[in-house]
Design a protein around this nucleic acid. Structure first.
Lengths: 208, 208
DNA sequence: CCCATAAGCGGACCGTAGTCCGCTTTATTC
DNA sequence: GAATAAAGCGGACTACGGTCCGCTTATGGG
């Protein structure tokens, strides 16, 4: 049949249907609760569905996969972090010199491990993080901007990947927990890495 | 019953039992065959067991998990690479200046993607690579030695982690396949990273 | 208020990773 | 070569991630 005079019968042409939105929240809350009380690794999709009082199919319709659910969870708890480095107060947010902001970004990322490092790690698909995810892209974009601001020449995109690779939740958790490295040591290594990239050789030149 | 005069009734006090060794080989061969003809993602543990003519339990007894099997597979095909950078000809092996060896190591790792990048990526547990695996440790140890040889001061262990993070198979495959970046570009970015760490600012100072 | 449409929903179903436990094989000792 | 103890083995079994498809409900227009 050809199209009728009803071109946009969408539930809501911008967002999702009311019940869908409600269920999304129910599911995220349920997931957060389970993570809080039993840990990420003991979260099953059936649990989440049951706890939220919906069917399992709904969970997968919303989030696509377990990793997708974790991503959504990580994004929710990490939203304030995003805002902090996008538009919060210096030195993390705009206002401070780019070099300091880079340092602050690393420190903040590393200290964020306690909050939801395990969730972020679990958000990785089998075979590593999902580098194509919007959050990851945003982080790299941020790094690129800061690098450019410090006057770094060359392949900024890959430089951003290199920096972000060290901030990978799986790696940091390994260093912190399995290897017992102190946060301060990780932060110092980040600073050295940033200095090496931005050309501040000694590490003292741009130091606080 | 108390212990008798037979203190060491081990099958073989060093290695594994004959049949176990035979099955290990059968299993690795079967896995390699399946990977070669159907790809890593279409390999199931039941397939491997059946193809090798053993029970499924045997596969898990030998390799612990799917990731473990992949690791073993990657290690076998990567053994010659290990030998190449440990004791092969320069510039990859000993004999060349450390700076050149670092560059060669990155280039070799990146070019190795074609061979078994997907296997290595699949060797990662859910939530990233297994940084504690002997092969990873060997790589980092190698990097530490080379870094020290170039006169780098500071936290060499974490510097090695930073370098190795960029050579992660999952990341490189993403850059190469999803993002369509040329190998040459990745290698150049590696060189720049190494130069930044070793203090060769311009990139031309130690250039070939 | 009723209809048409499409999005949403649920839970039975499927495939695969990983476990378990009783049986078999290997190696060692006398 | 018989006894014995440990390692190995196999395949039924479980748990969980993910799919499918017929049913329900929200939504917007007549």
């Amino acid at each position: 049949m050809e199209q009728r005079g009803r071109p946009l019968p969408l539930g809501r042409n911008d967002g999702e249907r009311r019940d869908a939105a409600r269920n999304r929240k129910l599911l995220l809350d349920a997931a957060a609760g389970i993570v809080a009380c039993r840990g990420v690794e003991n979260l099953t999709m059936d649990d989440v569905a049951h706890q939220a009082g919906v069917g399992k199919g709904t969970v997968f319709r919303r989030f696509g996969s377990r990793a997708g659910l974790m991503q959504a969870l990580a994004d929710r708890t990490g939203r304030d972090f995003q805002e902090a480095f996008m538009s919060g107060p210096p030195p993390l947010g705009p206002g401070a010199p780019a070099g300091q902001r880079l340092r602050a970004f690393g420190a903040a990322s590393i200290n964020r491990l306690d909050v939801d490092g395990r969730v972020v790690r679990a958000a990785g698909s089998p075979g590593g993080q999902d580098h194509a995810h919007p959050t990851q892209r945003l982080v790299r974009l941020h790094l690129i901007v800061l690098l450019r601001e410090t006057g770094v020449q060359g392949d900024l995109e890959l430089a951003a990947y290199q920096l972000a690779a060290f901030l990978d939740a799986g790696l940091l958790l390994h260093l912190s927990e399995d290897r017992g490295m102190a946060r301060s040591r990780l932060i110092e290594a980040w600073n050295v890495l940033v200095d090496g990239m931005t050309g501040a050789q000694g590490g003292q030149l741009l130091d606080e």
